[in-house]
Design a protein around this nucleic acid. Structure first.
Lengths: 199, 199
DNA sequence: TGTGATACCGACCCAACGGTATGGCGGCAA
DNA sequence: TTGCCGCCATACCGTTGGGTCGGTATCACA
């Protein structure tokens, strides 16, 4: 069996995965390229062969790794929700699982740090938020059509609110780990979700 | 009139204010001490005379400037709220005013960046969140006693949720400035607040 | 088997980082 | 007036930051 020794796509992913770990833990400015290539067990030569500079690498990480993770954990599951009880259960589960290593937590913390100052990163991150909101809009509109979301609900408003709520949970969870705050937030969120119920 | 030439307390505040501007714009790791003393029109000698190191200065900023600003804009006003309509108006107003320069936005972004990795900063920041939640708890309990908050409401849960919601708004606002998202979030938040109303 | 292109390494560059050492100057008590 | 301490400036240090460059190993293809 021939094992290729040079696998550029794999190398690229290895770098992005290492970068993701560093970004999630130390933020964008706090993550050095040295720490990233050390974690990847590669060198700066490899890094700068695949990416023009640090920012371009961060954008690639956002688009190639972070966005798909958000998609998989937070967005795709919405498609198979068919009742308000299912939506409640899903939101509660995601709230209780929230941790600093979660993709959503990385999205939120990178956004908070960089979006205001760096428009390139900001736009890449906002695309994910936009997509996320869009998925909630689609869910709520479907819920209205299927009769388990109240007719008077405005999907775009509630979608923006829900995404912001998860973002907020991830911040307060970072400040105050432990189950307590997550549980109370999850409970209050379920109370809010009840207001969307038909009738 | 004798104008004192050495005013250490004033110098200290000048440094902290400059640090606050840098932290708000570039985060903790992204703010260099050089940029801070330049903004303050002082030198590192002054900085390290008043603070042991960068982290201690950040803690001093959090406790001496950030916390009082949060207190003034977000916490103290809660004391003079005497009806659910007043609470709705207050929350809407704060939502619509939210900007990257707001103290709450700085609190959130610094928390997202540092709380998970630096327990010293994390605890200083969490104190503010804790105090904020406490103020909402007091408000909701008073509202129950005065009869304009529903009896079945659990103040601690709703307080955690409200603080998280504002934190989330500040993040999504950073990613997507402009009135649109803020307005829709404010609307949905008011819808949620209605669920707290007595009867 | 050669050959040009791609993938990666390792040493290096300079600027900026957080932090220190020293010393002058203003203000106050004796 | 002197002596001293608190306040702040200046110059500097070692390290690390992002980024460059020449070279080498490996590839696809001829």
């Amino acid at each position: 069996m021939k094992q290729r020794k040079k696998q550029p796509q794999q190398t690229r992913r290895t770098i992005l995965k290492a970068a993701g770990v560093e970004f999630s833990r130390h933020g964008y400015a706090g993550s050095g390229l040295g720490a990233i290539v050390d974690r990847a067990e590669l060198t700066k030569g490899a890094l700068f062969h695949h990416f023009a500079d640090k920012r371009a690498m961060a954008v690639a990480w956002i688009e190639n790794l972070l966005a798909p993770e958000i998609e998989e954990r937070w967005i795709t599951p919405l498609e198979s929700i068919g009742s308000l009880d299912a939506l409640r259960a899903f939101c509660r589960a995601r709230c209780m699982e929230l941790a600093a290593e979660d993709a959503a937590s990385a999205l939120v913390s990178l956004t908070a740090e960089t979006a205001a100052a760096d428009s390139t990163l900001g736009e890449a991150l906002d695309k994910i938020f936009e997509h996320w909101r869009g998925a909630f809009v689609a869910l709520l509109e479907r819920g209205k059509a299927e009769g388990w979301i109240h007719r008077s609900i405005q999907p775009s408003a509630e979608a923006a609110f829900l995404v912001s709520a998860f973002a907020g949970f991830s911040v307060t969870t970072r400040a105050h780990p432990g189950e307590g705050v997550r549980r109370t937030c999850a409970g209050a969120l379920e109370g809010y979700l009840e207001t969307l119920r038909a009738q």
